[in-house]
Write a protein that binds this DNA or RNA. Structure first.
Lengths: 333, 333
DNA sequence: CCCGGGTCGGGAAACGTTTCCTCTCCACTA
DNA sequence: TAGTGGAGAGGAAACGTTTCCCGACCCGGG
């Protein structure tokens, strides 16, 4: 009795159970209008053939794929990895699958991938998209259920974001409380939205604290950028540094230490993100813990509402938690 | 002229162009049996309606989804992240999409996800699966085109692996060359295949160097495990430590430094993996660079052969590159 | 005993494609 | 001029489901 080599279909089950296709479908989907005894017989037949409905055919007729797509600028970025992790687990818990796409920081790729992957899934989550605002809004309006992470695109589009501004404000307050009055901000990529939020927070802080001097220095986004900024930071005479992110902070910390500067005795350093390593540097890094995994999980929750045809929740803003460790201390006298 | 709100289909294009469905399909797929002028007209109609064939319907009839699934034990693990990154970019370059699943280190989840996601895609890549060997072989035999990363399951199943044993041998040789004769190996998870490969390499090395004493100490897999092992390492009197991975090495390094032990003057430490941070510790970590992204890319290449109906290449073994940095030095006198 | 209503299962349409088969039409050749 | 062959396009089947619609059957009431 040779098994049908190419996948057992619902027709095979129907034949085996001696009923029609419709009945098999109903029985297997728990439709109550089918006689319990018959249903059991069908289930047995299905089990004996190891039958599973083709997700493809099912999707086609049902109009949903039970899959969402996630577009990320760089799978190598720890923050996005964490977002993806939270997202994927949350979606999996709801029996949804995740199609993933890495735009490699390219705006063109991003646009392309968004529409392309969206067509294969029920909805899409754009993680920190790099698209310019107008294009983003047009795109978001065009492609069905969509949730944005760390960007917004008008009222209709649910958003989940980390409140970088508020967190940076917390960091500034922390430094200010320690007595620091000359502070350097090591900027990230200029065009970046995350950077803009920080600059705004800095402006706010300046406005309410006129005895503090905050200088912006070109930085970057990775360890080497932080290390490269060390001379400029030391030359600036500042007593504390706000780095764009933890990577930059760590690069800076390691470089200034190498040139004899003590952290935090001579210089306080704060990072941003709280990547897993931040707690393990010497001294451990004071930073703002961006709840990346939760960001992902919340984004999924939003998307799920949309998929279920419900109203999306209000734009969500998660405030990163100021996490004070050893890299910040009182201003040197 | 209101646009059909729910997706424009091939029928709309056919109507617009005044031809049959078949012709539209042929024209759009570049079938040469359609008159060039007509084909152009069809393309125009399609463009004017912004028509794109439904991937779902297409997949159903074509029998391929242009998608593969990847199952990973933990999306939070930097090595798997890197594998995934290489894999996803390589697949994307070949116009394939990637469905991702995180088994959360659970064997049951892994088994489930493998068969479940496999049904929605054309093939599957299991990244360092945790399944016991017999089950893995059965599973691999059952679910179509499959490629394994860091595990093998018989001759029929293409495999891409990092040669942990060879790399550990390189590390031992490096330490031995520096004069170390008392070495500690900080083991990972006992049941782990990667751990077994290392133990084997250690046994080999012992066999050919009878003046060296290699002690195995229970370790673990993360930073904290490394830190926790510090007292035992210091008490052992060893002059060098092989950590299961970089995380463990870093935890250990930071803990022994905190208790006054100098690295590498008093103790040499080598890690494994070369995670991005390894070069940034103080001192930078000597380690074996596992080419994770390439592992992913190669796995895709193998799978692609299978999908194209060609013979899979021979089992591939990538040898991690010994990367000597500052955490190893001559044995203390 | 006949008829109405309710329950349950089968047939067929639908989802949106691709492709096989067939038919038409035209040009060329014998 | 009639027959042959090929090009090109339409019709319909197929992919594997779900679900609407309808018919059959059974039960109870009049």
């Amino acid at each position: 009795m040779p098994r049908p080599p190419k996948g057992v279909t619902i027709a095979d089950v129907a034949a085996q159970a001696g009923v029609s296709l419709s009945t098999v479908s109903r029985a297997l989907n728990g439709n109550p209008t089918v006689d319990p005894a018959l249903a059991e017989r069908v289930r047995e037949a299905a089990a004996s053939l190891d039958y599973r409905a083709s997700p493809l055919a099912r999707s086609l007729v049902l109009g949903r794929t039970q899959t969402i797509s996630v577009v990320v600028p760089d799978l190598g970025n720890p923050t996005f990895q964490e977002v993806l992790r939270g997202l994927s687990r949350a979606a999996a818990a709801d029996q949804y699958h995740v199609l993933i796409a890495d735009s490699a920081e390219s705006v063109d790729e991003e646009r392309l991938l968004a529409v392309e992957t969206r067509r294969r899934t029920d909805g899409i989550i754009l993680c920190a998209p790099r698209l310019p605002q107008d294009e983003l809004e047009r795109l978001a309006a065009g492609i069905g259920p969509i949730v944005l992470i760390n960007r917004s695109a008008g009222d209709g589009v649910p958003t989940v974001r980390a409140d970088y501004g508020a967190a940076l404000g917390d960091e500034l307050t922390h430094l200010y409380g320690l007595g620091h009055r000359r502070i350097v901000f090591l900027a990230g990529i200029a065009r970046s939205v995350a950077n803009a939020a920080r600059l705004e927070a800095i402006a706010d802080f300046r406005a309410s604290h006129d005895d503090v001097e905050i200088t912006e220095l070109p930085g970057g986004v990775d360890f080497d950028a932080g290390a490269a900024a060390a001379p400029a930071v030391l030359a600036s005479g500042a007593t504390a540094v706000l780095a764009f992110n933890d990577l930059v902070a760590m690069g800076l910390q390691s470089a200034v230490q190498a040139s004899g500067c003590r952290v935090p005795a001579d210089l306080s350093i704060v990072g941003f993100d709280d990547i897993p390593f931040a707690r393990h540097t010497t001294p451990p890094l004071t930073t703002a813990a961006v709840p990346a995994a939760e960001l992902g999980a919340r984004a999924w929750a939003q998307l799920r509402l949309l998929l279920d045809g419900e109203e999306p929740g209000p734009p969500l803003s998660l405030r990163p938690q100021l996490t004070v460790r050893g890299s910040t201390g009182p201003v040197p006298r």
